[in-house]
Design a protein around this nucleic acid. Sequence first.
RNA 1: GGCGACGUAGCCAAGAGGUCAAAGGCGAGGGUCUGCAAAAUCCUUAUUCAUGGGUUCAAAUCCCAUCGUCGCCUCCA
Length: 454
Amino acid sequence: MKIYNTLSGQKEEFVSLTPNVVKMYVCGPTVYNLIHVGNARPAVIFDAFRRYLEYRGYSVIYVQNFTDIDDKIIKAANLEGVDPKVIGDRYVAEYFKDACALEIRPATYHPRTTNFIEQIKEFILNLEKKHFAYQRGSDVYFDVSAFPSYGELSHRNPSDMRSGVRVEINENKDDPLDFVLWKGSKVGEPKWESPWGDGRPGWHIECSSMSRTLLGDSFDIHAGGNDLIFPHHEDERAQTEALTGKKWVSYWMHNGMISVKEEKMSKSTGNIFTVREALKIYGKNAIRMYLFSKHYRSPIEFSSERMEEAKSAYSRIARVMEEIEKHVGNDFHVKEDEFIKAQRMKMIEVLDDDFNTPQALSIIFDLVKDVISTGDTEKMKRVKFLVDEWNYFFGFDFKPDRKNIDDLVEFDLKLRNDARSRKDYQQSDEIRKKLEELGIEVMDLTDGTRWRWK
RNA sequence: GGCGACGUAGCCAAGAGGUCAAAGGCGAGGGUCUGCAAAAUCCUUAUUCAUGGGUUCAAAUCCCAUCGUCGCCUCCA
């Protein structure tokens, strides 16, 4: 299997640190409001990739964090006059609602920053001992100059960055590239006791500390949006490798951004489309199809045209799957013949190549193309078998949406009552009998007709 | 200004030296089917891969330049 590694800038053969086990850390959302479609991309893609790894025989330890202490959370809390924890708890819960609706599987661990304060403090303390950190007032900073390979991940040159650096507001730092590990508390902010005075963790330290606690000093894959490469991941890497002296992450995977009208979808620009809205309008299958239909590293445009297109593409597969089920049912055995092996090999070949989901989808479209019209039930079974097998990582739901069943029953009852008013009791009784067969009990009361499930 | 990515049919999108006169999806047009509609199905829709040079027996794929778009350099998935 090959994975594009941001660190080397090329595709590399994937070899896990421990045979058959993959340890993976994905940067999760800062919980101060509902997640948007841009946030959903890494969540869906890397969860699907993790499932693919499982499909390929790995057991995967998957960590996705929540940043539940940060300026925006504090701001939101102050605005509402509640404790930041209330905001964090609320939006963690909301996140799970969206993730679940998107068919994203929960991670093995979902650590939250505020539960790791002790580990974070210890981390910083050890950096200080090793002279990678210095204190200014109640703040503690990481000394970038002490870490020679700083800039390697984001392919930047520290001295270039210093010369092009924007006006630095913080006079405390020795070097504009240095970043904060621990922030001294200000009035009205949540704080924790520490050797440097009351304060809270800086942004980058949490991922280092939590991943180290849960996955160890070194692990296989670190993933997130490519807007995190610098400074977030660069800084995480610096502080972690400075502390342990070991190579931290083997493979860095970064997804491309989602844009709206040629501008990045971002909470700060405000051009966001929440997952909740998207779910309501297009449904989870269309969203997943949309995300899989372009390679995860490329930027992707979000628009109603794209979403409708994805929805149509999804429906094409779903319809065929439904049709096959009508022909051959659900309960059948398929012999693993050459056809199945060949198709499976094709699928593995493209997904093993840096998770090429667009190509993977084209294999399904090819399979689905004319199975029904040929009337070949053996072929239908094999196609369904394969698509179901691959659905382990695609996570589509091919079951038709039956939410409108109430309306459907009401409509049947209307037809029946039309028949009754014509005194066409043969017709009306036939409808009632059919509904009864389907488990629906019809009752003609003096004030109208009612129905209920038997 | 620095760094990086990208530019493939009406639209979306794979392909990364020969098997490419370039997958797949959406859309559009035509045929079959059909009481009508939908679905399904068949056919058509890039002699060409932003532009200009170069390397090579061979380039959409490698190199250089130009134009254009996006991202990062500040919080961001």
